[in-house]
Design a protein around this nucleic acid. Structure first.
Length: 456
DNA sequence: GACAACTTGTC
DNA sequence: ACAAGTTGT
């Protein structure tokens, strides 16, 4: 009887283009394992929206594995301990997995390596993070030169076919029941808007990709218009690895036409991962040290403003629409993410980490690298230096990107207002708040606070 | 060490 | 037109 090998699943919950499954299947029987490890990342415990997604993604993968005559083994605990227990039960000595670059996953890999022949495969990025290097051999900090260099590594490999069959081991280790993990909310169940919006799992990801492919040529024109379905909405599927970036790249690039802007966004995903590789603490640590001295607002007034922002009650229609879209669907249009982030950081002068934490808990696509890099980009605190303090003007942005219908959808109190008035309603319906800060005042306060740290 | 360039702007 | 520092070549 051949010894089985373990496929250790993390954010790679798919069967197609999954090198770990193929490598394990070639060797003999396969034991697919997912370990829910809530201690692994301490304050980076998976957020509530992500847990909802995880539940459905695991259910989908378990069904797909069953159709191949296999199973998904679920365990709760420390990864290396659970895998070691499975080793004792089954004799498995090899673990196949895909590379992940969050600092906690890299630590977990070191622990697993102590006890197993751990074989890590690539496939969740266009090019393996760390392999795109500058002329002098270092890693890039600036997006554009990174993207130019990444293109030398493209196209990514042709996606791998899913395994035709997976041999079952002689003995199946015990599995916990997904229901018992209570990943879905109860009392109250706020997940209705999530299930109306999303189909987690590999099949849902494939469908979402197919819908986008026919719109890909219009991506550049439409991607900044939140009222239209211009973006791919693939981020949660990519985060959980239900689709691979190579699958996306090939599906989109094969369409021809002008899809470079979209492919550049996939490149941004690789870029963020490369930043995390260089700066593992980036989610909590300013890339520029002088930002440690920035006089962020704290105290009861700032806390009240934070709550107004979280609830979509700032009195800025575009900001409130975005925050309510996030709460309802677990996702927010990218252009609006920039606007609400700029508003929190600049107008409210609240530490970008508070916004990052909220996104971490509420986004179905919450991703350590993306979230950290993008919030630091908005704050200007990152290593990807932008020269000037950029303070987005919410009303200008709202009009420029034609957000009227988007606002009507998410801020129903304003649905009766005209296109001209809705961005900055003069006569406010009684249930809609006044702006919590005037644009000019917030802008001046931010400029002063940012100027104060310039020379540090 | 010179020089070009920097994801998303400015009510 | 403008802001005006750092990275990468």
């Amino acid at each position: 009887m051949t010894t089985p090998s373990i496929v250790w699943l993390r954010r790679d919950l798919r069967l197609a283009d999954q090198a770990a499954f193929l490598a394990a299947a070639r060797k003999g029987p396969v034991i697919p394992v997912y370990v829910l490890d809530d201690e692994i990342a301490q304050h980076r415990r998976m957020g509530a929206a992500s847990r909802w997604w995880l539940h459905h993604s695991l259910a989908s993968l378990a069904a797909d594995l069953q159709a191949l005559g296999s199973r998904l083994i679920l365990r709760r605990g420390r990864c290396h301990e659970e895998l070691a227990a499975i080793r004792r039960e089954t004799g498995a000595r090899t673990v196949h997995a895909l590379h992940h670059y969050e600092p906690w996953w890299r630590n977990a890999e070191r622990a697993v390596e102590q006890q197993f022949d751990l074989q890590l495969h690539h496939g969740n990025y266009l090019a393996p993070p760390g392999t795109v290097t500058t002329g002098s051999g270092g890693l890039y900090k600036i997006y554009t030169p990174f993207w130019r260099a990444l293109q030398q590594h493209l196209p990514p490999p042709t996606p791998l076919a899913p395994p035709a069959r997976l041999e079952a081991p002689a003995y199946w280790p015990a599995s916990e029941r997904l229901e018992d993990w209570k990943l879905r909310p109860t009392r109250p169940d706020w997940s209705g808007g999530l299930s109306d919006t999303w189909s987690p799992g590999e099949e849902g990801g494939r469908a979402r990709l197919a819908q986008f492919v026919v719109r890909a040529q219009r991506y550049e024109q439409r991607r900044n218009l939140p009222a239209l379905p211009g973006t791919a909405m693939l981020s949660p599927h990519l985060h959980f690895g239900e689709v691979s970036p190579a699958q996306v790249w090939h599906a989109v690039a094969d369409q021809g036409g002008s899809v470079d802007t979209f492919l550049g966004e996939l490149g941004w995903r690789d870029y963020a991962q490369n930043i995390i590789l260089q700066f593992p603490a980036y989610g909590g640590r300013n890339g520029k040290a002088q930002f440690d001295a920035l006089a962020w607002r704290t105290g009861p007034e700032a806390e009240a403003d934070l709550i107004a922002w979280q609830r979509g009650q700032t009195g800025y229609p575009i900001v409130d629409a975005g925050m309510r879209e996030l709460w309802h669907t677990g996702w927010m249009h990218n252009r609006v993410r920039m606007i609400v982030a700029s508003f929190l950081i600049k107008h409210l002068l609240i530490d970008w980490r508070r916004g990052e934490q909220w996104f971490w808990d509420t986004l179905v696509d919450a991703d350590y690298a993306q979230n950290s890099v993008n919030w630091q980009w908005s704050a200007g605190s990152g290593v990807d230096a932008n020269m000037f303090v950029r303070i987005m003007a919410p009303l200008t942005q709202s009009a420029k990107f034609e957000a009227a219908d988007y606002i009507r959808r998410w801020v129903p109190e304003l649905a009766g207002l005209s296109d001209a008035e809705i961005h900055d309603p003069v006569r406010r319906p009684p249930r809609y708040p006044r702006p919590i800060i005037a644009h000019a005042e917030g802008r001046a306060r931010a400029l002063a606070a940012f100027a104060a740290i310039k020379g540090e």
